[in-house]
């Protein structure tokens, strides 16, 4: 039987032994090919969760496996088949876009490097930018380059931390369309941490789509966007988010 894209069991992280947990007993199983969202306010534990899934951060308790590999013992086998993008982690600014993509093609042992870079450049409208230093690009262009890096190894599992933060609505929409297209073509599983409720509603609003609502490191509610809207009797996820963040329970949800 094919393993889940992600399996987390009682995943916990405390940055200080006596301090409150940043993530507290998170348990979930995300199937292959699904698109899930992690929603929560600042400090809810989204970035910490993603860092533990990537092996950047060692959990204080519990365990996590990605694509069938235990991230405590065998993370490199999983990392070769995953990728990640975040606007808060940069690519080297002083080398060109093509050189950046070549670096990551080597790190991920991507076959036919130049062909893959040309494909991505065309797909992400980067062809004219390939010879420009990455640091000279606009925020939208940098996001496209970061996505090209994240797709360079044709990942089976893609982790995205606020992929459209600081982008204008047009570019944000373009990125979401690209992710939908890539998911449809590749069957890639996508886990998305975001503050953008409309984005989560759109990307996770497909069969198998699921949202984990986090607050203070714990899952306070979960379900498909449609199920959450029905449960809270709201028109959009932003209202559901505010209900949860402010501790309001709608009658239907109570």
């Amino acid at each position: 039987m094919e393993s889940d894209a992600i399996q987390a069991e009682a995943l916990t992280k405390r940055y200080r032994p006596e301090g409150p947990p940043a993530v507290d007993g998170l348990t979930f199983r995300m199937p292959r090919g699904a698109t899930w969202g992690l929603l929560g306010g600042n400090g809810a534990g989204k970035t910490t969760t993603i860092a533990m899934l990537l092996g950047l951060l060692v959990p204080s308790g519990g365990r996590v496996s990605c694509l069938g590999h235990d991230m405590a013992r065998d993370r490199f086998a999983a990392l070769a088949r995953m990728n990640f993008s975040s606007p808060y982690i940069a690519l080297p600014a002083r080398i060109s876009v093509a050189e950046n993509l070549r670096v990551y093609a080597h790190l991920y042992d991507v076959p036919r490097t130049e062909q893959r870079i040309a494909e991505l450049a065309e797909e992400l409208q980067l062809t004219e930018l390939l010879d420009r230093p990455a640091g000279e690009l606009s925020a939208g262009q940098k996001t496209r380059v970061a996505l090209a890096k994240a797709l360079i190894n044709r990942p089976e599992l893609l982790l995205l931390d606020e992929p459209t933060a600081s982008l204008d609505p047009d570019t944000g929409d373009w990125v979401r369309s690209l992710l939908e297209r890539y998911r449809a073509e590749s069957g890639c599983a996508i886990l998305l941490a975001s503050h953008n409720m409309a984005e989560v509603e759109r990307l996770c609003g497909v069969p198998g789509g699921h949202v984990l609502m986090l607050k203070q490191g714990r899952v306070v509610d979960a379900g498909s966007p449609a199920a959450l809207l029905a449960k809270y009797g709201r028109e959009d996820l932003e209202e559901v988010f505010l209900d949860i963040a402010r501790g309001r329970q709608r009658a239907a949800a109570a």
Partner: peptide, 16 residues
């Protein structure tokens, strides 16, 4: 250089 370019996060989540 990796620290200055804020690139270590990407390097450490690669299979390197």
């Amino acid at each position: 250089e990796e620290i200055w370019s804020r690139n270590l996060g990407h390097v450490f989540v690669s299979p390197l």
